[in-house]
Measured scan of single mutants.
Amino acid sequence: VPQRAWTVEQLRSEQLPKKDIIKFLQEHGSDSFLAEHKLLGNIKNVAKTANKDHLVTAYNHLFETKRFK
């Protein structure tokens, strides 16, 4: 089981690129989880459509539901 890579403050910070969060989610989330949160596909394309709040919610949801690969 992966550990949380970032704190809530870090997740919301401008310093953390959306692409980093997407990469983490794609590496650790199950396909059904990723599909549900519309996070499947090319990281660049996902970054265009997903806002930061959406990614933070998905990140927290992944750990709450433990839907890891």
Rank of each mutant, 00 (worst) to 15 (best):
residue 1 V to T: 09
residue 1 V to L: 10
residue 1 V to Q: 10
residue 2 P to T: 05
residue 2 P to Q: 03
residue 3 Q to N: 10
residue 3 Q to V: 10
residue 3 Q to I: 12
residue 3 Q to M: 07
residue 3 Q to Y: 07
residue 4 R to M: 11
residue 4 R to H: 08
residue 4 R to G: 11
residue 5 A to R: 15
residue 5 A to C: 15
residue 5 A to N: 15
residue 5 A to Q: 15
residue 5 A to M: 14
residue 6 W to Y: 07
residue 6 W to A: 11
residue 7 T to K: 02
residue 7 T to V: 04
residue 7 T to M: 03
residue 8 V to N: 15
residue 9 E to K: 04
residue 9 E to H: 02
residue 10 Q to M: 11
residue 10 Q to V: 05
residue 10 Q to S: 03
residue 11 L to G: 01
residue 11 L to I: 05
residue 12 R to P: 04
residue 12 R to M: 15
residue 12 R to H: 14
residue 14 E to R: 08
residue 14 E to G: 09
residue 14 E to M: 08
residue 15 Q to R: 06
residue 16 L to P: 13
residue 17 P to M: 08
residue 17 P to S: 09
residue 17 P to E: 11
residue 18 K to I: 13
residue 18 K to C: 15
residue 19 K to Y: 13
residue 19 K to H: 15
residue 19 K to D: 15
residue 19 K to Q: 15
residue 19 K to G: 13
residue 20 D to M: 10
residue 20 D to W: 04
residue 20 D to V: 12
residue 20 D to T: 13
residue 20 D to E: 13
residue 21 I to G: 00
residue 21 I to L: 05
residue 21 I to S: 00
residue 21 I to E: 01
residue 21 I to Y: 01
residue 22 I to V: 11
residue 22 I to E: 01
residue 22 I to Y: 02
residue 24 F to V: 04
residue 24 F to A: 06
residue 25 L to F: 04
residue 25 L to D: 00
residue 25 L to K: 00
residue 26 Q to V: 06
residue 26 Q to K: 06
residue 27 E to Q: 11
residue 27 E to L: 09
residue 28 H to F: 14
residue 28 H to E: 05
residue 28 H to T: 13
residue 28 H to L: 06
residue 28 H to D: 01
residue 29 G to T: 02
residue 29 G to E: 00
residue 29 G to A: 10
residue 29 G to H: 01
residue 30 S to G: 05
residue 30 S to E: 09
residue 30 S to Q: 11
residue 31 D to N: 12
residue 31 D to I: 14
residue 31 D to M: 13
residue 32 S to Q: 11
residue 32 S to N: 11
residue 32 S to C: 14
residue 32 S to E: 09
residue 33 F to N: 00
residue 33 F to P: 00
residue 33 F to K: 00
residue 34 L to V: 04
residue 34 L to S: 01
residue 34 L to E: 00
residue 34 L to Q: 04
residue 35 A to I: 12
residue 35 A to M: 10
residue 35 A to T: 08
residue 35 A to C: 15
residue 35 A to E: 11
residue 36 E to S: 07
residue 36 E to Y: 11
residue 36 E to R: 07
residue 36 E to K: 07
residue 37 H to P: 00
residue 37 H to C: 11
residue 37 H to D: 00
residue 37 H to R: 09
residue 38 K to C: 15
residue 38 K to T: 07
residue 38 K to H: 13
residue 39 L to T: 01
residue 39 L to F: 03
residue 39 L to P: 00
residue 39 L to N: 00
residue 39 L to A: 02
residue 40 L to D: 11
residue 40 L to T: 09
residue 41 G to D: 07
residue 41 G to L: 03
residue 41 G to F: 03
residue 41 G to C: 06
residue 41 G to R: 06
residue 41 G to H: 05
residue 42 N to I: 10
residue 42 N to S: 10
residue 43 I to L: 10
residue 43 I to R: 06
residue 43 I to V: 10
residue 43 I to N: 06
residue 43 I to D: 06
residue 43 I to E: 08
residue 43 I to A: 09
residue 43 I to M: 09
residue 44 K to A: 14
residue 44 K to P: 12
residue 45 N to Q: 13
residue 45 N to I: 15
residue 46 V to A: 06
residue 46 V to I: 09
residue 46 V to C: 06
residue 47 A to R: 14
residue 48 K to T: 13
residue 48 K to W: 07
residue 48 K to C: 13
residue 48 K to S: 13
residue 49 T to G: 09
residue 50 A to E: 06
residue 50 A to I: 14
residue 50 A to C: 13
residue 51 N to G: 09
residue 51 N to C: 11
residue 51 N to P: 07
residue 52 K to G: 03
residue 52 K to V: 07
residue 52 K to Q: 05
residue 52 K to D: 03
residue 53 D to W: 05
residue 53 D to M: 06
residue 54 H to Q: 12
residue 54 H to W: 09
residue 54 H to G: 12
residue 55 L to G: 00
residue 55 L to C: 05
residue 56 V to N: 02
residue 56 V to H: 02
residue 57 T to R: 09
residue 57 T to P: 03
residue 57 T to C: 14
residue 58 A to Q: 03
residue 58 A to H: 02
residue 58 A to E: 01
residue 59 Y to F: 03
residue 59 Y to R: 01
residue 59 Y to Q: 01
residue 59 Y to T: 02
residue 59 Y to S: 02
residue 59 Y to C: 01
residue 60 N to R: 05
residue 60 N to T: 13
residue 60 N to S: 10
residue 60 N to I: 15
residue 61 H to F: 07
residue 61 H to D: 15
residue 61 H to K: 08
residue 61 H to N: 14
residue 61 H to E: 12
residue 61 H to C: 15
residue 62 L to N: 00
residue 62 L to W: 02
residue 62 L to I: 05
residue 63 F to H: 03
residue 63 F to E: 01
residue 63 F to W: 06
residue 63 F to A: 02
residue 63 F to S: 02
residue 64 E to T: 07
residue 64 E to I: 07
residue 64 E to Y: 07
residue 64 E to Q: 08
residue 65 T to M: 11
residue 65 T to A: 13
residue 65 T to H: 14
residue 65 T to C: 15
residue 65 T to D: 08
residue 66 K to L: 10
residue 66 K to S: 11
residue 66 K to C: 12
residue 66 K to N: 09
residue 66 K to T: 06
residue 67 R to F: 06
residue 68 F to W: 06
residue 68 F to P: 03
residue 68 F to M: 03
residue 69 K to H: 07
residue 69 K to C: 07
